[in-house]
Design a protein around this nucleic acid. Structure first.
Length: 864
RNA sequence: GCCCAGUUGGCGCAGUGGUAGCGCGUUCCCUUGACAUGGGAAAGGUCACAGGUUCAAAUCCUGUACUGGGCACCA
């Protein structure tokens, strides 16, 4: 075995073996089901580091539960991605100078299909490379035949329940994408703009009103000017008419409570066709809605001389002309939140248009109840409140999109007939609605659709509801809430009882990754450079619920180092085994175990328990940190170092005990690490198999090691801590006094140090010939640990000034410790109801510190 | 404006009532037969601030400040 872990060949070999064994396949069985449906990535290109995080987490959970013996099923798939994917294709076409409309709908869709095929391949390949143990036989796509059937059936069912309607409403319109969007597909950002005070003269030639507006270009759609009924300044105008500049259309002045007379001039121009609040006012007062802006973002005929100008140009021109002609009273700087398209960033235009909607209030009731009754939990809990609030204050969902890529709305029209919901044409003369459904409509059905819904399949019965959903908080409403609605509406059960919400992977400085900033990290590159296990560990070790991750390549490097450490620990163990014997902890003879054995077994058991509990609680970071620390700082740093001496000795019971523990603890730790870093653990487990007694070829089939004996041993742990303390005290002394590293020193020992533990100190601190204390040897340095003191004669080596300085520092530390213990003891004895153990523990701590102080004081006295 | 989260050594983060931890980085020493992708030692924090509860607070409560986020917005 080579002394450096080389991930590439190992990963290739393991993937091939896993694939050949169809290791991740699942079928309904009598075992407990543990099911996850993948958040299907959009077919917009390659996966990014966020996907790597999302899928690593899911894979860890899946592997963990499979190793616990459950029937795990992780369903792979991709999402057609509606607008996002169509935008990608439009960019491609633009580069080829092809117009989408010239190409035609059918040819366009043909190209989309081709692109989708390629993209799926890329995505699934990347997931495979990541080690994702997906049941590839179940691959689904939100627009394949089975999913199309589910979408149709869901639409039809909602229609029949009266939950779908078509109507002309003010919707969020993306001028760039040329489609309506739902309320949650809109983002808001603060932008600096202006607030223009514009005079609308009275129809009778009087002064009229001065309105304040941020959007003067929409004034051609005004159908009233509103003032607050309590506003004395403008009361005389109510009921009068004023005239819109340039086009001289007269509009009424109305009174409405909505108007805030603190703001602007207290006069509000009302444009029902282009503003939600104005729309509401319009409804209350029976105002007409005049469209001043067209779906392509240009001013309409209503704008008279400005017709045909873009929104932006129109605004500039209108403002310039208002000023030139004396209508502009004043311009203020004004910050306002503009709404932008979540797909292309263009400014959203509220536009009156005919769209399809899904009624939400009714559908939101069941998820709300499920949440309140604890049948659905969000991790971390802090996302529960906004989730709930969103459901309570929910608005109807605009589901029609004016694009081509998606599920065509299954509604057919014919003159003089009522619209019909049908999969295909009901007959001659019928035409299908040209729009497609919001991509999130099909996503909402995902946990149902991947198991064959609406058919009552065996899969659906066994796997639904699924166990957990792992996703980012940015699609909590967009997706998670909608799945809850649909799942409850159609199957009466939550689609998953738990949602694990992870954060966004940001760059090192905490900035969001974006192509334009050039700070995007390619997961494939990281895997190439450091190995897949290292990337997975780097992501997972920082994946605390709901928290964003600041991604630093350094972390991957350090995890690569950890993987290498694991590799080398196994190399060491393997080098020290003889062929032909298998080991297990169960066969260990307890009488021949020494302190380090009892200690490592106790720690091993505790860490296994912890990592399992952490993974059960969807906390892979906790599991990763526990196992990392155990393997490196306990198993390698202390146990292996101590075992070295035993392994070079003659064959015997002690050597065999050390071998058994090395093999078993390592094998068990590899199993525990397998959900986190599957490749290296599988490779090493295979290498250990002749000795570990493991008969299964794959860790996923082998399952976790179940200790048959309770190795927990607090006494051994405490005792080992004392030995470690002694070793560290001597090492520290040596380092600070510049005792040569390879120099073995003698020592006089005062206090307790069991004979059996002397070899530990001897080996790890290079001390030999530990004589019992009779007197402090001359010219010696002193290492004081709890319960034991070492006097190390160092004539000619010790710089006594330095030694004094060192001891003084240690004395100060002892004093601090005592003071802290005193404070604690005082508190504890003053309090009532303090457990006796706590008091005893505090006393012990204090006694130890006092003893240390005494030794240090004595030594310092001798030195001076 | 309302709500939520965060504020811990240079950086990134754990830690939820009893003497502050981890990774990276820094300084010094070391190529000793698992590993220099390593080993040893060390420096570095009054846990944002102000009150409060408690015998005891980084941890619980209240308030303030800053940062990030969610929701709602006065045109």
């Amino acid at each position: 075995m080579i002394d450096k872990y080389d991930p590439k060949p190992v990963e290739e070999r393991r993937l091939a073996a896993w694939d050949a064994a169809k290791l991740s396949r699942s079928a309904p069985s009598d075992k407990k089901a543990f099911t996850i449906v993948i958040p299907p990535p959009n077919v917009t290109g390659a996966l990014h580091i966020g996907h790597a995080l999302n899928n690593t987490l899911q894979d860890a959970f899946i592997r963990h539960h499979r190793m616990k013996g459950e029937e795990t099923c992780w369903v792979p798939g991709t999402d057609h991605g509606g607008i996002a994917t169509q935008n990608v294709m439009e960019k491609q076409l633009k580069a080829e100078k092809v117009d989408r409309h010239a190409l035609g709908r059918d040819a366009f869709l043909e190209r989309m299909q081709q692109w989708t095929r390629d993209c799926k391949k890329t995505i699934l390949g990347q997931l495979h490379r990541l080690g994702a143990s997906l049941d590839t036989d179940r691959e689904a796509f939100t627009m394949d035949e089975a999913r199309a059937e589910a979408v149709y059936q869901a639409f039809k069912a909602l229609w029949e329940r009266g939950l779908i309607y078509r109507g002309e409403r003010l919707v969020n319109w993306c001028v760039r994408c040329g489609t309506a969007l739902s309320d949650i597909e809109v983002e808001r950002e603060e932008r600096k703009g202006g607030l223009w005070h514009v005079r609308y003269k009275g129809a009778d030639g009087s002064e009229g009103a001065v309105v304040a507006t941020t959007r003067p270009e929409t004034m051609f759609g005004d159908t009233a000017v509103a003032v607050n009924p309590k506003d004395a300044r403008w009361a005389h105008l109510v009921g009068q008419k004023v005239v819109i500049p340039f086009i001289d259309r007269a509009i009424p002045v109305i009174a409405d409570d909505y108007v805030d007379f603190e703001f602007g001039t207290g006069c509000l121009k009302v444009t029902p066709a282009h503003d939600q609040n104005d729309w509401d006012i319009g409804q209350r007062h029976g105002l007409e809605a005049i469209k001043a802006i067209s779906p392509d973002g240009k001013l309409t005929e209503a704008a008279g001389p400005y017709a045909g100008l873009s929104r932006e140009k129109g605004k500039d021109q209108v403002v310039a002309d208002l000023e030139a002609q004396g209508f502009l009273v004043k311009k203020e700087d004004h910050k306002s939140a503009v709404q932008t398209c979540y797909r292309c960033g263009s400014v959203i235009e509220p536009l009156l248009s005919l769209q399809w909607f899904v009624k939400q209030t009714e559908l939101a009731k069941a998820p709300l109840k499920a949440f309140d009754e604890g049948r659905f939990k969000i991790h971390p809990e802090s996302w529960g409140k906004p989730y709930r609030a969103w459901l309570v204050d929910i608005k109807d969902w605009c589901v029609s999109r004016q694009i081509w890529w998606g599920h065509r709305i299954p509604v057919w029209y014919k003159d003089g007939e009522k619209p019909v919901v049908a999969k295909s044409s009901p007959g001659a003369g019928w035409t299908q609605d040209p729009d497609v459904l919001d991509t999130w409509f099909s996503s909402a059905l995902w946990p149902l659709a991947v198991f064959g819904w609406p058919e009552k399949t065996k899969d659906l019965a066994f796997y639904y509801p699924t166990s957990v959903l792992v996703t980012g908080y940015e699609i909590l409403y967009l997706w998670v809430a909608r799945m809850q609605m649909m799942g409850l509406a159609f199957e009466g059960k939550v689609p998953f009882a738990d949602a694990v919400i992870h954060g966004i992977v940001r760059d090192k400085g905490g900035k969001k990754m974006s192509k334009s900033l050039g700070n995007v990290v390619d997961p494939l590159l990281m895997m190439d450079k450091y190995g897949t296990d290292a990337l997975r560990m780097a992501l997972m070790a920082q994946a605390y619920p709901g928290k964003d991750i600041a991604f630093d390549e350094q972390t991957v490097v350090s995890m690569r180092n950890f993987v290498n450490k694991v590799w080398n620990s196994a190399r060491f163990v393997l080098m020290n085994l003889a062929p032909g014997k298998t080991y297990s902890l169960d066969s260990l003879s307890h009488c021949c175990l020494e302190l380090s054995d009892k200690w490592i077994l106790s720690r091993y058991q505790a860490v296994l328990k912890e990592s399992r509990a952490r993974l059960d609680a969807y906390d892979p970071a906790g599991a990763a940190n526990a196992l990392y620390g155990f393997l490196w700082d306990e198993f390698c740093a202390w146990y292996i170092e101590l075992a070295k001496g035993r392994l070079t000795g003659i064959d015997g019971e002690d050597k065999e005990a050390a071998r058994a523990i090395l093999v078993s603890v390592l094998a068990g730790t590899l199993k525990a690490l397998h959900p986190l870093m599957p490749f290296v653990t599988e490779e090493l487990s295979e290498a250990l198999r002749p000795w570990s007694g493991e008969t299964e070829s794959f860790l996923l089939r082998a399952g976790y090691a179940e200790p048959a004996y309770d190795w927990s041993n607090p006494e051994a742990e405490a005792e080992m801590r004392r030995v470690m303390g002694a070793v560290t005290a001597i090492r520290s002394l040596r380092a600070q006094l510049n005792v040569p590293v390879d120099m073995t020193v003698k020592a006089v020992v005062q206090g307790e140090l069991a004979d059996a533990h002397r070899p530990y100190v001897s080996r790890l601190a290079k001390v030999e010939g530990m004589e019992p204390f009779t007197a402090r040897p001359p010219q010696s340095a002193t290492a004081v640990a709890d319960g034991v003191t070492f006097y190390i004669p160092l004539a000619g080596v010790v710089d006594f000034a330095k030694e004094k300085e060192r001891l003084t520092k240690e004395l100060a530390k002892a004093e601090t410790d005592i003071a802290k213990c005193d404070g604690k003891l005082k508190n504890l004895s003053a309090a009532t109801g303090v457990p006796a153990e706590k008091l005893a523990e505090a006393r012990e701590q204090r006694d130890a510190a006092v003893a240390r102080r005494e030794r240090l004081q004595e030594t310092l006295a001798v030195l001076s």
